[in-house]
């Protein structure tokens, strides 16, 4: 049987590259000027162009939460937005969370509670937890569990992640 099953191609797509443009990104309080084509995602801009590799790529499709960053204080999946779309925003990554001397309280709590194993989902978990606290919707342990469900942890550190966040939020263990 002769078949032609090929990667999706379309005749109307002439093989040419998109125009690069000047893009200004404010990340962790620092303004970065980049020349990027519009097809660069915020995640790839951070990792491949700015070498801010603390933000992780775990699926590139909004299905794992490893790429979570804060945009104007709100947590988002940086893999599903284009860098060019975030020109006017304040972006905070894991590299920008710690205070001058020392760690963010959530970072300290994650270490203390062993709220990770391999560490790959960890920056996304922590940024997500910061976003969770900013949102102010979580009142109970079950709220934390539900509202942190956008961050997969394949090592299965969930109970410790919840312990760490709960402690920083002053929520009782059995609430």
């Amino acid at each position: 049987m002769q078949t032609t099953l090929s990667p999706e191609t379309r005749a109307d797509l002439a093989p040419s590259l998109p125009q690069k443009q000047a893009i200004k990104l404010t990340i962790n309080g620092t303004v970065h000027h980049l020349e990027l084509a519009p097809w660069t995602t915020l995640l790839d801009a951070l990792r491949e162009y700015l070498h801010l590799t603390g933000t992780k790529k775990g699926c590139d499709h909004g299905q794992c939460g490893a790429c979570t960053v804060l945009v104007d204080g709100k947590r988002i999946n940086s893999c599903l937005t284009l860098a060019v779309m975030k020109e006017d925003s304040d972006i905070t990554t894991i590299e920008g969370l710690a205070a001058e001397n020392g760690l963010h309280p959530l970072q300290t709590a994650f270490v203390e509670h062993d709220a990770y194993q391999c560490g790959y989902c960890t920056p996304g978990q922590i940024c997500s937890a910061v976003g969770l606290m900013n949102e102010g919707q979580a009142k109970t342990i079950d709220d934390i569990r539900e509202l942190m469900s956008g961050n997969l942890c394949r090592c299965g550190a969930y109970p410790h992640i919840v312990d760490a966040i709960r402690e920083v939020m002053h929520i009782e263990p059995k609430s």
Binding site: G62, G65, T68, R75, I76, N77, S128, G131, L132, E135
Partner: peptide, 9 residues
């Protein structure tokens, strides 16, 4: 639906 991150976007 989705996750907190996706709902923010």
């Amino acid at each position: 639906g989705a996750s907190a991150q996706l709902r923010n976007m």
